[in-house]
Design a protein around this nucleic acid. Sequence first.
DNA 1: ATAAAAATCAAACAAACGTTTGATTTTTAT
DNA 2: ATAAAAATCAAACGTTTGTTTGATTTTTAT
Lengths: 211, 211
Amino acid sequence: MSDTCDKADKRQKLLEVAESLFAKHGFEAVSVRQLAAEADVNLSMVSYYFGSKDGLFQEMIKSKFPQTRSVLEDLAQSDIHPWEKLTITIDMYVDKFFLGRAFHRVIMREMSLQQRPEHVNLIREHMARSQELIRGFIHEGQKKGLFRYVDVELTIATLFGTLSSAINQGALTCSMLKETNLEALYSDQNRERYKQHLKALLHAHLMTAGV
Amino acid sequence: MSDTCDKADKRQKLLEVAESLFAKHGFEAVSVRQLAAEADVNLSMVSYYFGSKDGLFQEMIKSKFPQTRSVLEDLAQSDIHPWEKLTITIDMYVDKFFLGRAFHRVIMREMSLQQRPEHVNLIREHMARSQELIRGFIHEGQKKGLFRYVDVELTIATLFGTLSSAINQGALTCSMLKETNLEALYSDQNRERYKQHLKALLHAHLMTAGV
DNA sequence: ATAAAAATCAAACAAACGTTTGATTTTTAT
DNA sequence: ATAAAAATCAAACGTTTGTTTGATTTTTAT
């Protein structure tokens, strides 16, 4: 007849709380006491489970890092039009960033701070491999004469930069889109708006005139 | 025959050190003792000059906030082609972000954290007014039939998002551009590359076929 | 049922934090 | 020259930090 915890999912609770609090306030600003209180566990359990506050953070990153690469790998081996591969990729990443914005705020801040090289490398390698696949889509389109010979790397940087800013500079994006509520920025409606914009943008940029 | 300080420019030194250290490690991670040591002043001078660590931060923001709006206002009243207004704007902002990347890292992180609403509002209002002027450039081009009727707000979000990511997710951008050294990412060469990419991207996106 | 193992907890730890104090030196003004 | 004001400093302040300890409860396995 316990309150909430069935068994050893206090560990899981800590990971969830960590994602939420780190996203909201940043790693340094969240104390172990806050984490323990929010997860309704004893202070010392953080060290007991994860070794340290830093260990908890790393575990959270690893456990939450989404498995999107398999989708991209399937796309890479598919026979569909390269442009369709890109539209599917765009749809996927808009959803991924918007719906998992708490997590993405955390990992983007880790990248920005560059304080913990292990985290930076972990995140970088993971994202770099995904971006390599996207690069393949564009190169394929270029070889087939379907895409223009644009700056592929910076085109991908623009895709991720647009999404990253929507998540990290929410207050600024909010005022630009004339949204009063900050969370309204991430509504289904705006998610569709971002998808449409990114497709229109990359379509104009990539597609050769003839097609 | 003093070492470095002529008089009361220890205050200025503190502001410079603050920008550098806050950009490198984040506000919370930098201690007053670090700041004082790096600026070669006594620990207590931070409170003496700025009231508190937070006061130093705010002063740094206010003193460093660049004056780019006047350039945009001049452009707005000029008679040149709307597309030229945009190319000038792009050149200006690429330089602004790349050369002043330490400062931009700090303010973008403040936006991302949303912990200190005063800072968020100060930064948001400043940037929003600049972006309003850019909106005007695009609207002008649209009214004159020179630009397509794209999603103006998200187009601007893409411009700033691309630059913001180059500054904040440097490690990721670095590995994508195959740059070994992180600071080499911000070379003159790559600055030109970003300018070219953004112009090509927005040109394809905005310009009507006929021109 | 019982003993070993794992999990949980309150309490205390040393270290680092931002800030304040009060004495001392330097500058300014008469 | 001298007294008031400003600037500087070492030292200590009270908190809060992440982590550890050692006792206690709960679980597991025999």
